[in-house]
Design a protein around this nucleic acid. Structure first.
Length: 587
RNA sequence: GUCCCAGUAGCUCAGUGGAUAGAGCGACCGCCUCCUAAGCGGUAGGCCACGGGUUCAACUCCCGUCUGGGACACCA
């Protein structure tokens, strides 16, 4: 993969000047980065000594790949293939020259056991054994910081997710974002971004009034409004309110509805907060829609938008001309009767986020809201922003839940689809979170309750947690046996078994996985990596005895392997932390 | 009608333009007198929906077709 000279990373902003303060963590330069720099130097050498014609544009950075096939070394690059055409030279000839330049580079030649040319012109690098230990040292010294990066340093991100109406319990439609959104927040933070997690509360409008009316009807024992809320939870809320405020029943109808509405809202919101908290999902800001209309804030937003020239009046209503930016129709903000359309809130909320200093606004929406994508991007344009840079909309497909082979649809309590809380009661927080996170959000998914309760390979969360618990067990035994392990016992030259090489290689990939998960907004990559890493560990464990057998005396190899185990446990724990899933020491 | 998403092993799904396309399940065959068998190994199973194009190189990018799912409001 080439990165062009002038192309600035998408998410950098002018705030970068402060970035230095945010990055005290890992200053360790990995062997991979050292080699990548060496290849760039080698290319420059080839250019200056005439092997490559002067007109060939050289990449300023390159990214080494990790070959799937171990016969292809520890790292590989196809740079010779990529440059062959513009250079007018056979790729294998470029590769040969590159090979010579690398081996002549004193800065890296000692790290390389072999530089091979393969296939059409791939350059395969095999590390010297002693040079593989760097990543282990780095993991052990960085600890829980290992994997963090500065790829998004200085970027202020507003991450909005869940944003359920406070008129009922959180249900299956919210669970995916509750897990994925929280994980994405963790991943973005690990990449150095300054993340604010926000829950938008729709606390005004017709739905709220219907909610109040429904509760009051339940309290009075009269029929609920047709379009109102019919779940059994309404009864619970009503009786809770009547217990503390019996007088609400006696108020005139409108006041009574409002009283029940406001009290019910407080109860329901608190309930949502409790459930999310139990799910290990946390928010920094609970943003009230109502507040957008307080203190003249909405008018201020309208003025701001007017200055950009896309606001107009038509048939007594105030519109935003979103069709200027690709929306399929213009959007009403203030209806002809003077009331606010929903888009008024969307607009003001957008302005609010930007004025609070966020560079990137991430919206996580359900598939049923995908029609919002165009209008939100157009809104960003209408506000004078660059939608490609300032706004990022993720659409999550639906989740189905299966039990005993049948789809669960109804929740007894909510009278709607199954609630988030019921899901957690069934499978537990770890299994629920992990499963929801491990799939890309743009594909529909099915959660099978029976699988999530099973303790086998088909339940990835246990597979991964088991690897961690297994290592912890080994390390406990190592300690009991008086085996030393840690930074002073890495002994990379002793770790020459194929399984050991694989494991070390997998550990070294972690920082790059985190960075790409952050840039692509795809936390599922962490889970997939984790499964890969756990599998690699289990295979290592099966083939490489860590602790002495019977009366066998302890050797440096035992220490080295225990140290490798310790660093693996650290990376597994760091990965699980990014997903908000626990890393048990015993299972 | 317009727009969005998907189509990869029998099933559920990974796969950020690279070499021989992967995992789990299901099927079949194996591995615990010793560190957690919630584990490991092996066999079988593929026209990466179809047709063009771009590229040294396409499951991956572009265009089109087919099939499946979803969305369209002066509702919230």
């Amino acid at each position: 993969m080439l990165r062009r000279v002038g192309s600035s990373p998408t998410f950098r902003t002018s705030n970068d000047l402060d970035a230095g303060n945010l990055l005290p963590m890992s200053t360790h330069v990995s062997i991979q980065e050292v080699l990548e720099a060496a290849i760039v130097r080698a290319l420059a050498t080839l250019s200056s000594n005439g092997v490559l014609p002067a007109h060939v544009e050289l990449p300023l950075t390159i990214t080494l790949e990790r070959p799937k096939n171990r016969d292809h070394g520890d790292y590989a690059t196809s740079i010779a293939l990529a440059l062959a055409k513009s250079a007018g030279i056979a790729p294998r000839d470029i590769a040969t020259a590159l090979q010579a330049a690398l081996l002549a580079d004193a800065a890296v030649s000692k790290d390389l056991a072999a530089v091979d040319i393969a296939g059409a012109g791939f350059l395969n690098l095999t590390l010297a054994k002693a040079s593989q230990g760097g990543v282990i040292a780095s993991i052990l010294t960085s600890g829980s910081e290992f994997g963090k990066s500065s790829t998004l340093a200085g970027v202020k991100v507003n991450l909005e997710f869940v944003s359920a109406n406070p008129t009922g319990p959180l249900h299956l439609g919210h669970t995916r974002w509750a897990a994925v959104g929280d994980a994405l927040g963790r991943v973005l933070s690990a990449a150095g971004a300054h993340v604010t997690r926000e829950f938008y509360v729709n606390d005004r409008g017709v739905q709220m009034d219907l909610f109040g009316e429904s509760i009051r009807s339940a309290a009075l024992g009269i029929a609920r409004p047709e379009a109102g809320y019919h779940g059994a939870y309404i009864e619970d809320i009503a009786s809770a309110i009547v217990t503390t405020n019996p007088e609400f029943k006696e108020l005139p109808e409108e006041q009574s509805i409002h009283a029940f509405r406001d009290a019910g809202y407080a109860i329901q919101l608190a309930d949502q907060q409790r459930v999310l908290d139990n799910m290990n999902t946390h928010f920094d800001i609970w943003f009230s829609e109502k507040s957008l209309y307080e203190d003249n804030f909405f008018n201020h937003c309208l003025e701001t938008l007017k200055k950009q020239g896309h606001v107009f009046e038509h048939e007594g209503a105030i519109w935003l001309r979103t069709t200027d930016f690709g929306d399929d129709k213009d959007r009403v903000m203030i209806k002809s009767d003077g009331s606010f359309a929903y888009f008024a809130s969307d607009s003001a909320y957008y302005i609010s986020k930007r004025e609070r200093g966020f560079d990137v606004l991430i919206y996580m929406l359900g598939a049923d809201h995908h029609g919002y994508v165009h209008r939100l991007k157009a809104l960003a344009s209408c506000a004078g922003d660059d939608p490609a840079k300032n706004i990022d909309i993720l659409i999550g497909q639906l989740v189905k839940i299966l039990e005993n082979g049948e789809e669960l649809k109804l929740s007894k309590r909510a009278g709607t689809i199954i609630t988030l809380e019921e899901l957690i009661e069934k499978v537990g927080v770890d299994a629920a979170r992990y499963t929801l996170i491990r799939y890309p959000v743009d594909t529909p998914m099915v959660m099978d309750v029976d699988v999530l309760r099973s303790r086998t390979n088909e339940n990835p969360v246990y597979y991964v947690q088991y690897a961690h618990a297994r290592i912890c067990g080994v390390l406990r035994n190592a300690t009991d046996l008086g085996i030393d392990f840690g930074v002073d016992h890495i002994h990379p030259e002793l770790l020459e078994h194929e399984r050991e090489r694989e494991l070390i290689g997998a550990l070294g990939e972690f920082p790059r996985i985190v960075a790409s998960a952050a840039e692509l907004r795809e936390p599922h990559r962490i889970a997939r990596y984790l499964e890969e890493l756990a599998g690699t560990y289990h295979r290592f464990y099966a083939d490489c005895r860590v602790l002495p057998l019977g009366d066998e005396p302890a050797s440096e190899l035992h220490s080295a392997r225990a140290t490798l185990c310790k660093s693996t446990a650290q990376v597994i724990a760091n990965s699980l932390e990014l997903l908000g899933v626990s890393a048990p020491e015993k299972m």
